[in-house]
């Protein structure tokens, strides 16, 4: 190559290297950055609910016996419409507002059962026990059973389901 065409700054080879590297990084970024969004966008979407669920008449629930009420909520996850099942234990006491516990163990979200013989909630996953008021008796749970916010409309009981 005649010397008048030769750059004093860099040779052809380094120029090609720099151009290849910058074009390559640009293309990688154009594809790569959207990929992050592509992966995490379903995690950011709100799928939660904020509903008042009717549990029917208070008369359905006996005094001093935590009674399980099951209900289903339909949710859309991606392309699938699925029914999520929930459980609530209703505890009535004479002269007091009812207390409604979530049946989700506060340890790692297994479902608790009421053991009438020992008057305890029992979570079978890691052998956790809660008393009738939801307080931890033994086992790994970090806090008492969660309670739903309630509303009474005459003798009709409603609980507030908030998620997400």
């Amino acid at each position: 190559m005649p010397s008048k065409y030769r750059s004093p700054v860099m040779d052809r080879r380094s120029f090609v290297k720099i151009v290849t590297a910058s074009l390559g990084s640009m293309m990688a970024a154009i594809v790569g950055l959207p990929v992050i969004q592509y992966f995490i966008s379903p995690a950011l979407g709100k799928t939660g609910s904020d509903d008042w669920i009717s549990l029917g008449s208070l008369d359905n629930f006996p005094f001093d016996l935590p009674t399980l009420f099951n209900f289903n909520i339909t949710q859309v996850n991606g392309w699938e419409r699925s029914s999520m099942s929930y459980g609530a234990f209703v505890l009535r006491k004479e002269g007091q507002d009812p207390i409604v516990f979530s049946d989700v163990c506060t340890h790692l979200s297994c479902r608790v059962n009421w053991d009438e013989e020992n008057k305890e909630f029992h979570c079978p996953c890691h052998n956790a026990f809660f008393d009738a008021n939801g307080e931890v008796v033994s086992g790994p749970p970090p806090r008492p059973l969660d309670q739903y916010e309630i509303r009474l409309d005459g003798d009709q009981l409603f609980i507030h389901l908030t998620e997400g």
Partner: peptide
């Protein structure tokens, strides 16, 4: 439903 899903599938 997925952000940039159209781009990935388009490519």
């Amino acid at each position: 439903g997925v952000q940039f899903g159209w781009l990935i599938r388009g490519i």
